[in-house]
Design a protein around this nucleic acid. Structure first.
Lengths: 139, 139
DNA sequence: CTGTTTTACGCACCTCGTAAGTATC
DNA sequence: GATACTTACGAGGTGCGTAAAACAG
């Protein structure tokens, strides 16, 4: 069985759960309280559960909402871990590429070709070398 | 630090990783291969990493992509667990509500009031009772 | 020629922020 | 009045599917 709710909305859920306020959550998320309100509303509708109690001075977790915080935080942590794994993989796969070519043949030509076949994205770096002479980093 | 990529796109990532094809993944996700293609493209752009190798007969995980599967699956499992926790909470909080009132005072009046204060959503059920006489389920 | 993925094209929806309204302290 | 949320509104963007193109077995 698949989930019907938007996983992204969990970020809004956590932000509101932590701050207890739409406005404060909005500041952390760099958006407006109106947007946060809508995301929470949507999440509650999708889950068919009231997650917050609307009080005059903010949002307070309901019993159900409180039970979801831990799980949501695991998801958040895993999402950040996934992001970190990218960086790890990048550094593991990064290596020094040296090029040799007869005079008159530009290194940049090969670099250009390499970038077409290799999985290269910023912040990857290639060093430019000519006959074992290192010409520095190429962005 | 917060994540920049869309957590939702991980569902598309997993579907493609498992089937090895946009079309097959699309069938499982009840959408079209075009949409799946775009979600993967967006995810790769956000993560700044190439997750799949485009082969003539399908999508194959790259080294980086393969490393993210486990983490993505944890997120998926936690998302489903979160959904399940809702159901658990619902059944724990559901209880029989009995009402007593003098003749002439409708039970429905109190039911109406109750629904304003209690966290009640479908598929919650309330039973209508009058002086301990059970009048059945009220939708 | 059947199975892919990719690209092109609009349309529709949806999300967003501004602004005004409501409520509480 | 200050601070919170809610509602209204309009614009902009974005995601969507259909359809056609490109490619391989």
């Amino acid at each position: 069985m698949s989930t019907a709710f938007s996983w992204n909305d969990l970020q809004y859920f956590l932000a509101v759960a932590r701050t207890g306020q739409l406005s404060a959550a909005a500041r952390n998320l760099r958006t407006t309280h109106v947007t946060v309100s809508r995301r929470i509303e949507q999440l509650e509708f999708a889950l068919k559960a009231k997650l917050f109690e609307r009080n005059p001075r903010g949002y307070e977790l309901t019993t159900i909402g409180r039970r979801l915080v831990d799980t949501a935080e695991i998801i958040e942590a895993e999402a950040e871990r996934l992001q970190a794994q990218i960086s790890d993989s990048v550094s593991q796969l990064r290596g020094l590429v040296r090029l040799s070519a007869p005079e008159g043949i530009s290194n940049f030509f090969f670099v250009e070709k390499l970038t077409q076949f290799a999985e290269i994205h910023p912040p990857y770096q290639r060093r430019i070398a000519y006959n074992s002479t290192d010409y520095g980093t190429f962005a």
